[in-house]
């Protein structure tokens, strides 16, 4: 006969514990997590925005320095979301402390919510700080602020989910860096972070449409200036689609215990 014991349907203390732990790790590595990307992005503004940008014409009626701001924020969001989320789950696997999370009364959803939520918080915070930094260098306008926040949060969350998947998949630190460095960064550079794809020859423009990052940057840029390379609806659908694909993979990971449980 069992004793009637109830456990809350949602383990909020557990989610908060992981979330706070991850945010504490963020504070411990503030230089790496926040200051470094801000300095790097500032250098982009100095070089491309002020030095080279002053000699370039407007793009879609937007000064070049201001034009690249959404792309640079997205570039930082992609990289940092992947890094934060992948390290967040990979480190406990590497050090063995994952045993505690796996033996705790936390559901798969709660684990993802905590790890991805913390990583997304850091990314959104970083995006907003870069935005504030950019405002120092170039005059900015945000036509659709609510959509800007929506795109920022959705993209950060999606890439944090993607990073979580990489952190579970990776067998070593080299694999952890493989996708961010060799796939995402090139796609971001070729996805219109520094130019409008309308500036490309027709063949390259068509090829660019197969790059999913184009849709993410285009939608985010639309929220700033009201102009975009592709329709904003298509951008939103592409971002949501990527989000759902990542979510499905994470659900599969926990259903099968892939590389988490033996």
């Amino acid at each position: 006969m069992s004793t009637a014991i109830r456990f809350p349907a949602f383990n909020r203390h557990g989610v908060l514990a992981i979330y706070r732990f991850e945010m504490a790790r963020f504070r411990r590595t503030l230089w790496q997590s926040l200051v470094t990307p801000v300095i790097t992005t500032s250098l982009y503004f100095v070089v491309f925005g002020t030095a080279i940008g002053s000699r370039m014409g407007e793009v879609d009626a937007v000064p070049y320095g201001a034009f690249i701001v959404p792309g640079l924020i997205m570039l930082a969001i992609f990289t940092e979301s992947l890094n934060n989320a992948s390290f967040g789950i990979y480190l406990p696997r590497f050090t063995g402390t994952i045993y505690e999370v796996l033996s705790a009364p936390v559901s798969a959803l709660e684990i993802v919510l905590a790890y991805v939520g913390a990583a997304a918080t850091k990314s959104v915070l970083l995006g907003l700080i870069i935005l504030a930094t950019a405002n120092v260098f170039v005059p900015l306008q945000i036509v659709h602020p609510a959509w800007m926040i929506a795109f920022l949060v959705l993209t950060a969350t999606t890439f944090c989910l993607f990073g979580f998947i990489i952190g579970v998949w990776a067998k070593g630190f080299e694999q952890l860096q493989f996708i961010p460095m060799l796939i995402i960064t090139p796609l971001a550079f070729l996805g219109g972070a520094f130019y409008s794809i309308d500036m490309l020859p027709p063949a390259w423009r068509t090829a660019s449409l197969f790059n999913p990052v184009v849709y993410l940057i285009s939608g985010f840029r639309w929220s700033f200036y009201g102009t975009s390379d592709v329709g904003v609806g298509v951008s939103l659908a592409a971002t949501l689609g990527f989000f759902l694909v990542c979510l499905a993979v994470v659900v599969w990971i926990f259903k099968t215990g892939y590389r988490l449980k033996s």
Binding site: G14, A17, R20, R25, G96, V101, P105
Partner: peptide, 23 residues
């Protein structure tokens, strides 16, 4: 095995464990 977060403090890590287990 001695699986602990080396950068944490005893107080921080026991607080984490208590919360993780829903208390």
């Amino acid at each position: 095995e001695l699986h602990t977060d080396m950068f944490e403090t005893p107080w921080g890590t026991v607080s984490f464990s208590r919360g993780l287990f829903g208390r």
